[in-house]
C-alpha cells in the first residue's frame, strides 16, 4: 500500500519522546515543514513538494539562566489557528511560541520551579490548537494551560488553567474533522491513562472524564467525536468522547506506543511504537449503531528503529513520515 521514499536528513538525531514529529503543510507555497526534537534543540526542515529543495534551521532552548544546564525540550508542534500558524516548543523550563518558521519568538511562559529540586520532574508536554484562538498546553503537575491567542501580534495571554488531571499530562488533541457539529473540542491525556474531554469557550467546560487503568496514555486524537487513545501496553482504544462508551480495543503493538495520527478526510489512523512497527488503520463511523469501526490496513517495519514520531503528511493519508530514537533522518512513505 505504501512504499519508502527518499529520507530527509536531519542536522541531529531524534530524542526518545512521545509524538516527536510535527508536520505543517503550507499549500500556497507548496512546502511541508517538519519539526523534530533533539535534546535541547528543535530541528526544523522545510521541504518543497517536488522534493528538490530542503532548508534547515535549528532552534535552541535558550530560555532561563544560561549558566545552568540548558533545559531539555519535551515536544515541538505547530498549532494551526484560522488566523495564524505558531510553532510551540515545550521544555523543562516553560513554553515558547514562535512564528511558524521559527524565526521570531512571540511568547514565553515560564513554569513555576521550586528553589530546591524535588523528586518530581517539571516540564510541559502536550500541545493543541483549539477552535479559533486557543492554544492548550499540558504540564507535569497535571494542569492544562489555556492561552488566548490574538489574530496577530504577541499579546498572548494565559486565560485559564484547567485542573482535572493529577498526573503529568502526556498529550492533547483537538477535534480534527473540521466540522462544528461535534460538541467536544479537546481531549487531554495523562500518565495514569485518564482522559478529559472538553468543550472550549470563554470558560472551558469539562464534558467527561474517562478513567484510565494506571497505564500511561502516550498519544491521543479526537476525530468526529471519537477519542482514539494509545497506551503503554501497546493497545489502542476508541471511545465516544461525550459518553465515554468504549467502541473498540485493539491489541496493536508489542511495546509502548509513541505516536498516533489521523488523516481527517479519509479516517485513516496511523500508530507507531517502540516495537519498530508503524501500522495504518481505517476508522469508519457506523451511525446505525452509534459506533465507530476500526479495521487494520497496513504494517510497516522500520527495522531496528525505536519509533518516536509518526505523522501523515496530508489530510488524506496519502503519505506519512516517521522518526526514530538516535536516527538522524525522517523516513517517508507514500501510497503506491
Amino acid at each position: 500500500m505504501y512504499h519508502r521514499e527518499k529520507s530527509i536528513q536531519l542536522k541531529s538525531s531524534a530524542s526518545a519522546l512521545y509524538n516527536n514529529l510535527s508536520v505543517l503543510r503550507l499549500a500556497p507555497r507548496s512546502l511541508t515543514h517538519f519539526a523534530v526534537v533533539h535534546a535541547n534543540v528543535v530541528n526544523l526542515v522545510s521541504a518543497s513538494w517536488d522534493g528538490l529543495n530542503y532548508s534547515h534551521r535549528q532552534l535552541q532552548s535558550k530560555e532561563g539562566n544560561v549558566a545552568t544546564s540548558s533545559s531539555l525540550i519535551m515536544q515541538a508542534a505547530w498549532c494551526v489557528l484560522p488566523s495564524r500558524d505558531l510553532l510551540v516548543v515545550t521544555s523543562q523550563k516553560g513554553i515558547q511560541m514562535y512564528e511558524s518558521d521559527g524565526s521570531i519568538m512571540v511568547y514565553w511562559h515560564a513554569l513555576d520551579t521550586p528553589e530546591t529540586p524535588t523528586a518530581k520532574a517539571i516540564f510541559a508536554r502536550g500541545i493543541a490548537a483549539v477552535r479559533d484562538k486557543y492554544i492548550c498546553v499540558g504540564v507535569s503537575s497535571g494542569a492544562v494551560l489555556v492561552f488566548d491567542v490574538p489574530s496577530k501580534g504577541s499579546n498572548i495571554t494565559l486565560s485559564e488553567v484547567l485542573e482535572e488531571h493529577t498526573e503529568a499530562v502526556t498529550d492533547m488533541a483537538s477535534e480534527c474533522s473540521g466540522s462544528a457539529e461535534y460538541i467536544a473540542d479537546l481531549v487531554s491525556a495523562d500518565d495514569s491513562g485518564l482522559l478529559c474531554v472538553w468543550k472550549s469557550g470563554g470558560d472551558f467546560q469539562l464534558l467527561n472524564k474517562i478513567p484510565g487503568f494506571d497505564m500511561s496514555c502516550s498519544s491521543v486524537k479526537l476525530w468526529k467525536g471519537t477519542v482514539i487513545a494509545a497506551y503503554g501496553t501497546g493497545q489502542i482504544r476508541l471511545y465516544e468522547g461525550v459518553t465515554g462508551i468504549l467502541h473498540a480495543e485493539v491489541n496493536a503493538h508489542a511495546r509502548w506506543i509513541y505516536s498516533l495520527d489521523i488523516a481527517p478526510f479519509t479516517g485513516l489512523l496511523l500508530s507507531a511504537a517502540e516495537d519498530s512497527f508503524v501500522r495504518v488503520w481505517h476508522l469508519n463511523p457506523a451511525p446505525e449503531n452509534n459506533s465507530v469501526e476500526i479495521e487494520h490496513l497496513y504494517n510497516e517495519c522500520v527495522t531496528d528503529t525505536q519509533i518516536c514520531g509518526a505523522k501523515f503528511c496530508d489530510g488524506d493519508g496519502y503519505a506519512f513520515a516517521v522518526t526514530g530514537y538516535d536516527l538522524s533522518e525522517i523516513i517517508r512513505y507514500t501510497q503506491a
Binding site: L246, A248, E249, V250, N251, H253, A254, D275, H296
Partner: peptide, 10 residues
Amino acid sequence: SEVPGLIRYF
C-alpha cells in the same frame, strides 16, 4: 501487555 493482532468491538 497483550500479544498484538486482535481487535475487540464492544
